[in-house]
Write a protein that binds this DNA or RNA. Structure first.
Lengths: 219, 219
DNA sequence: CGTCTGATTGACAAATTTCAAATGTAGTGG
DNA sequence: CCACTACATTTGAAATTTGTCAATCAGACG
């Protein structure tokens, strides 16, 4: 979820800025009562739920500018976990204060609702991806999604480092880690990407878009 | 998304109540600008997206008390379609008026945010279901979910009619319609349910819960 | 009565997972 | 700096699940 700079300004008064987190630190855990939501400044946060049997399901990899914890507003308890995947800087936004602010700032209120609406929309797109696409298409879409998000932040969209393991990618995409590894190798062989461990170069955007089922020109 | 009766009262002043819809009627289509969101009084509404290639992906079957159209707030355009699966009564809630109301009614504002938060949470649960569960578990969870929602409305939770086809169930759960059909037959043979066409009797809740991966007593 | 759509069932094919083993990488402490 | 350990990745082969294709059946409705 992106928060425009203008709105971030307004929030600056209430947020606890500059909360540094080390790799592996938890922002929150499922079951905890929800005090704050969190905006990511730098780094990467993964959110995940755990099923009754104990399976972990990653629900998102969150990059700077995005908000986590919105799923907790309903029950006032976090239904999910959030863990830093790398050293990260986090803004903590006390929810009570935010709610108070929205009463007097219509722009902030609308922005808040928009951010949540966008999250619903994003999850619907993920649903489509997982339900209607095969392994190739999922991984292609995943790489392009990461690429676009890095690009939006001013980083290179064609060359970046994966902060997550193959296992985590597979978990997120509903694939076995071996399948992810195989497809990475396959994409590499086919000249779509260059991959060495966590380092990714995207060589052929068009082909990847094609694969992901997002035709550019003519389908 | 459930809206408590108390809040529905507050809304009564602005909603256009009693919009009747026939089976097959559209509430809205993707691309339309979003004027209103909709609360379902009676009947059943399906929402779905369509991928660039034209595949349809059902994102939800919505029963009375639930709200549809929340995914449109962000872009002010509907990203999805909503179609009546049966004759239905719908409340149309003009979004502009609702937004104005939230400024002066803190309770309504919080409720609105909660409903959206809950929708995010529900979609995360669906994600878990689709990503980590096999066909058996998905169908079991689907039937139990329907059962619980019917029960919440005062209908029988052990006997109900499916409003959707096998094809639609499969689409929603990411399964081929033949797989759904086979599993229905299997569940029937195994004494978990009695099924004849669209009519379902749930005979063994415990076993279904077990299958769905929601242990009741001891796992 | 015939037609249409939805449902069922079987046989086969394809995609993906699982199991297994080998290899690579990074971090730790001597 | 090296050896050691733990963890991540790659790759192959076999097994399994689910999808696809095809035929048939059942009920609804004009």
């Amino acid at each position: 979820m992106m928060l425009p700079d203008a709105e971030i300004q307004h929030l600056d008064n209430i947020v606890n800025r500059g909360k540094p987190m080390d790799k592996g630190d938890m922002l929150f855990s499922a079951g905890q009562s929800m005090i704050s939501i969190f905006a990511i400044r730098t780094g990467c946060i993964k959110t995940y739920t755990v099923s009754p049997e104990g399976d972990e399901q990653i629900t998102g990899f969150h990059l700077p500018g995005e908000i986590v914890g919105l799923d907790a507003i309903n029950s006032e308890r976090h239904p999910s976990f959030a863990k830093a995947m790398t050293t990260s800087m986090i803004c903590e936004i006390p929810y009570q204060k935010l709610d108070d602010l929205t009463a007097v700032m219509p722009g902030l209120r609308r922005q808040m609702v928009k951010i949540m609406s966008q999250e619903i929309m994003e999850e619907q797109k993920l649903l489509l991806l997982l339900n209607r696409k095969n392994a190739n298409e999922r991984l292609a879409a995943f790489l392009l999604n990461l690429s676009a998000r890095y690009g939006k932040q001013g980083f290179s969209s064609s060359r970046f480092n994966l902060v997550m393991t193959r296992n985590e990618i597979g978990n997120y995409l509903g694939l076995a880690l071996e399948t992810v590894s195989r497809l990475m190798s396959r994409f590499h062989e086919d000249g779509l990407i260059r991959v060495q461990n966590r380092e990714i170069d995207i060589l052929d955007f068009d082909a990847l878009y094609e694969l992901a089922g997002i035709p550019c020109h003519k389908d």
